[in-house]
Design a protein around this nucleic acid. Structure first.
Length: 305
RNA sequence: GCCGAGGUAGCUCAGUGGUAGAGCGCGGCCCUGAAAAGGCCGGCGUGGGGGGUCCGAUUCCCUCCCUCGGCA
């Protein structure tokens, strides 16, 4: 029988972190984070990492393991996770992959196509071209070398057009063809995915409350510290970094920064829900905003047995 | 009280004698090496109240109410 791996996903502030710890206790599990931002060291408050108590209550992996100055991406994430899973299984523990980064989750399960890592030079050149001649120009270039990809990617979606062209230039193969070859965890393991689903108004309320709490726990000081670093492409995009930077730069006051962080987090949660909603493998656990983590963990456990 | 400006979408505001748009918000969606990123779609409306002119008023006129400046 294939080893089993449990996933727990859902929008931000839905209670994954605490539920996961309860679940880990019940299942003799270890938690692997599936969160593109909690990976970064020193960004604890803004990314709502589990606190010391929770970190001690269950073993966690891939939280604070990367410097915010390092470039990180799905590919590295998948490699890191595979290594962790092997270790955990060797210890006869249950791997629990927990987090809200939809792309990381699905690439992990379904696999990443075999390609090349981004080439700084090529990428920079393409972006420069996009800026000078417009993304439509690059899109028509893509149409010549890879019509299926061009069909799928909107002419305004510079990021994806650049990636597709970059792959073609480096491999001489269309990305649309390469993408058909994937190798995910579902080939070797039995995957079970649970999702936490809470009424939207309750979730939004929890987001607002959590942001207020972040501020009273020293969010501004934390971001000040983080801003001294030369942030990588990804880490600099964590919600909170730009808003506080603008506040510190005198663009607006603290209240405005707080309002924007709340709003941006709500919009992020909405996008997460869209992402997870379409994945029919997810087994949804309907919860309320006040439900206790241990109770939610029980609900998951019942579905497992 | 007088003078001036203004009341149009959830917010900030365009515009037009033929029943109205933009940005943001909000909702829906897409997503394969930056993903807390990036992109697409959707107007969600008693046009402050009432009256008048006109075939037709959100637009012109009258009146009332409200807001913001200035003068008292």
């Amino acid at each position: 029988m294939r080893p089993r791996i449990i996933f727990l996903v859902g929008p931000t502030a839905s209670g994954k972190t605490k539920t996961a710890v309860e679940l880990a206790k019940k299942l003799k599990g270890e938690i692997i984070s599936c969160d593109s931002m909690q990976l970064y060291k020193g960004m604890d408050i803004i990314t709502s990492k589990p606190d010391r108590v929770l970190m001690r209550a269950a073993r966690h992996h891939l939280i604070g393991s990367v410097s915010p100055e390092k470039e990180y991406n799905v590919s590295r994430y998948c490699k890191d996770v595979r290594r962790k899973i092997k270790d955990i299984l060797k210890r006869k523990r249950m791997p629990l992959v927990v987090g809200g980064t939809g792309l990381y989750m699905s690439i992990l399960v379904d696999g990443l196509f075999k390609s090349i890592s981004p080439k700084q030079g090529v990428r920079a050149r393409l972006y420069k071209e996009a800026e000078a001649k417009g993304s439509g120009y690059l899109h028509s270039k893509l149409k010549e070398v890879d019509p299926p990809a061009a069909m799928k990617i909107h002419p305004n979606d510079t990021k994806r057009i650049v990636r597709a062209l970059e792959v073609f230039e480096s491999t001489a193969q269309p990305i649309s063809k390469l993408q058909k070859e994937r190798n995910g965890l579902s080939k070797e393991y039995e995957i079970k995915i649970f999702g936490l689903d809470m009424p939207r108004d309750e979730l939004y309320k929890r987001i607002d409350d959590r942001v207020d709490k972040m501020f009273s726990s020293g969010l501004v000081d934390e971001v000040k510290r983080v801003l001294k670093l030369k942030l990588s492409k990804t880490s600099g995009y964590a919600i909170g970094v730009r808003e506080i930077k603008s506040y510190l730069g005198g663009e607006y006051d603290l209240e405005e920064a707080k309002r924007l962080i709340k709003r941006n987090t709500r919009q992020y949660a909405k996008r997460q829900m869209t992402w997870f909603r379409k994945d029919k493998r997810i087994d949804w656990i309907r919860i309320t905003g006040k439900e206790r983590p241990a109770v939610i963990a029980d609900k998951v456990n019942i579905k497992l047995s």
